[in-house]
């Protein structure tokens, strides 16, 4: 299962957790557990992508790095990506 997840991640296609769980053939809970373990082992990493504005920029100071932050979305996206080690592992499997 873990190897399958890495191989799917190495495809140049993004997936949601549910889609990946369906593809691997496990539940989302099992998938989360596997992702956590592989993160721990250093094959994948968990990244959070939010806006570049700091929390003090919420009210648009109109200068410096806060320019336009009043308009920026506060949405934060969480996603998993392969690390170099994970990529090397998949590459070795494909050889």
């Amino acid at each position: 299962m873990l190897t399958s997840i890495l191989e799917i991640l190495a495809r140049k296609e993004s997936l949601s957790m549910t889609q990946l769980a369906n593809e691997v053939g496990c539940s989302v809970r099992e998938l989360e557990s596997s992702l956590d373990q592989m993160k721990h082992m250093g094959y994948i990493r968990n990244e959070q992508f939010g806006q570049a504005c700091s929390s003090s920029c919420g009210k648009d100071r109109g200068s410096g790095h806060c320019e336009g932050c009043g308009f920026a979305s506060s949405e934060t996206f969480t996603f998993w990506v392969l690390t170099e080690r994970g990529q090397a592992f998949v590459d070795s499997k494909l050889k």
């Binding site: 993004s14 990244e47 992508f49 806006q51 570049a52 504005c53 790095h65 320019e67 336009g68 932050c69 009043g70 308009f71 920026a72 979305s73 949405e75 996206f77 996603f79 990506v81």
Partner: peptide, 24 residues
């Protein structure tokens, strides 16, 4: 790049934080 798109999403708010978000 997958992550590039999230910088573009920030750009829908304002392009300045969108461009800064490319730091990731």
């Amino acid at each position: 790049h997958g992550k590039s798109f999230f910088s573009l999403v920030s750009g829908f708010g304002c392009n300045v934080p969108g461009i800064m978000a490319t730091r990731t």
